[in-house]
Structures are given as structure tokens and as C-alpha cells.
Amino acid sequence: MSDTPNRAPKSQGPMPNGRHRLGGPEGRQPFEDDLYDLFCFLVTAARQLPREPDHYGPMRLAEAACRVASVAAAWASDAGDLRQVVDELMTARRQALNDPDAFLAGLDRVILRCADLERKRLAEGETPA
């Protein structure tokens, strides 16, 4: 079967670490398995959260965002900015339980960094006057 653009090749069976061999760029995460991890995580979290402490919701969303960004970073051609964002988000996520204020401040930093990246992208796309 030929591979469609932007899609990982078909699985060739599990590897010792439990992931499935999907091919893709050398040294990068198997794309489909990681997305399936995330899918299960989100559905199970949605089911469990109503019986868990309120602040677990933001924490699970931050965790999901980390996973999304990690998958994206593994497949991006230039993921320097994205990896920095992931690192900051993971740092913030680790503070969710013990220091909720630091967690929220960390989320603010990540959001502002993303906004700043957007501003730079927009500026690069603008035609000089």
C-alpha cells in the first residue's frame, strides 16, 4: 500500500516498547499510536473528571496539550519553537497540584509565547509598505 502524503505508513507490528512500527521520519514518534494514546486519554478523562477534583480538569487539558504538541513536534520539520512551548507547558503542568497559582501563571506564559509566535508569523507574511 502506498502512503498518502502527511500520513504515517501502515503499522508493521508492535515494537518492544509497546509502540507500533509505523515508519515515518527516522527517530520520530509513531504518529498513529501517539494519537490513539491521546484519544483514549481524552475519552477516559472526560468520563472520570465529573467524579474528580475540579482542578483536575485544567490539569488534564494541559496534559493533553502537551501530548498534542509533542506529537506535532516529532513530525514538524522545524519544531524548535514548539518544543520550547512543550517544555514550558510541562513545567507548568507539574505545578498543577502543589502550586495552582504557579500553574496558571505558567499557562499564561505559554499562551503569551504562542501569541508572540503568531505575531511574528503574521509580520513575516505582511507585504512591506
Binding site: N17, G18, Y36, T44
Partner: peptide
């Protein structure tokens, strides 16, 4: 201890980091 089984458990355990 099997990595594939740990991964399967992890998929349904959002609290497992």
C-alpha cells in the same frame, strides 16, 4: 511489566504519568 500492556493500561488511566 510488558511495555505494550503498560501502554494499554496507560491509555485508560489519565492519572498515570
Amino acid at each position: 511489566q510488558q511495555p505494550a500492556r503498560i501502554r494499554a493500561v496507560r491509555r485508560f488511566a489519565p492519572g498515570l504519568s
